[in-house]
Simulated assay, not measured.
Amino acid sequence: MKEIIATMAGTVLNILVTSGDNVSGGQEVLIIESMKMEIPIESETDGLIKEIKVSIGDFVNEGDVLIIVE
């Protein structure tokens, strides 16, 4: 399994996938808002979304696990 992690601290603005979705490497899966900027988070690998560990509105720190891909 592969973890998609937060690249910076911020608030989860939007989740673009759901559990069970197939993703490709480079596909945007989540948007974080930090310092009034929207930062897209991309999957680094192809796979199936196993678990989404955050909800819209959650504050995340850099390095937090956001999504599990298998």
Rank of each mutant, 00 (worst) to 15 (best):
L66N: 03
L66P: 07
E33Y: 08
T18Q: 14
A6M: 02
N22L: 13
T11E: 14
F59S: 14
N14L: 12
N61H: 11
I4P: 10
G25A: 15
T45E: 13
K50C: 00
V54N: 02
E51R: 11
M37R: 10
K53C: 08
T7K: 08
K36G: 11
G57A: 01
L30R: 03
F59R: 12
V69R: 00
G26W: 12
D58I: 02
L30P: 08
T18E: 14
S55P: 00
E51W: 00
I67Y: 05
L30F: 11
S19R: 12
F59L: 10
I56G: 02
G25Q: 11
E42H: 12
S34N: 13
D58Y: 00
A6C: 07
S43P: 07
I15H: 04
L66V: 05
I67E: 03
G25N: 11
I32C: 07
K53L: 15
G26N: 11
V65H: 05
K36T: 05
E62C: 09
V17H: 04
V60W: 07
D21S: 01
L66Y: 02
I15G: 01
L13K: 10
M8T: 06
I32Y: 06
Q27H: 01
I49A: 04
V12K: 04
S55A: 14
L66A: 07
D58A: 04
E70A: 12
L13Q: 10
L13A: 14
A9D: 03
V65E: 13
E3R: 11
E33V: 05
G63C: 04
T18L: 00
L16N: 12
I39K: 06
V54T: 07
S19T: 15
M8N: 08
T45K: 06
M35D: 11
N22T: 15
G57H: 04
M1Q: 02
T18G: 12
G57W: 09
D58R: 03
I5Y: 05
E3P: 00
K2D: 13
S24G: 08
G57K: 10
K53G: 02
V17E: 04
S34Y: 02
V60C: 05
D64L: 01
V29I: 15
D64F: 00
E42I: 13
I31A: 09
L66D: 07
S19D: 14
D64N: 07
M35P: 01
N61F: 11
E62M: 13
G47Y: 06
N61Y: 12
N61D: 15
A9V: 03
E33I: 08
G57L: 10
E33L: 10
S43M: 07
S19I: 15
F59D: 03
E28A: 14
T11Y: 05
I56N: 01
E3M: 08
S19E: 15
E38C: 09
G47H: 07
V54I: 15
D21W: 01
T11G: 09
I49S: 02
K50I: 10
I52P: 05
E42R: 14
V60M: 10
P40D: 02
V29E: 06
N22S: 15
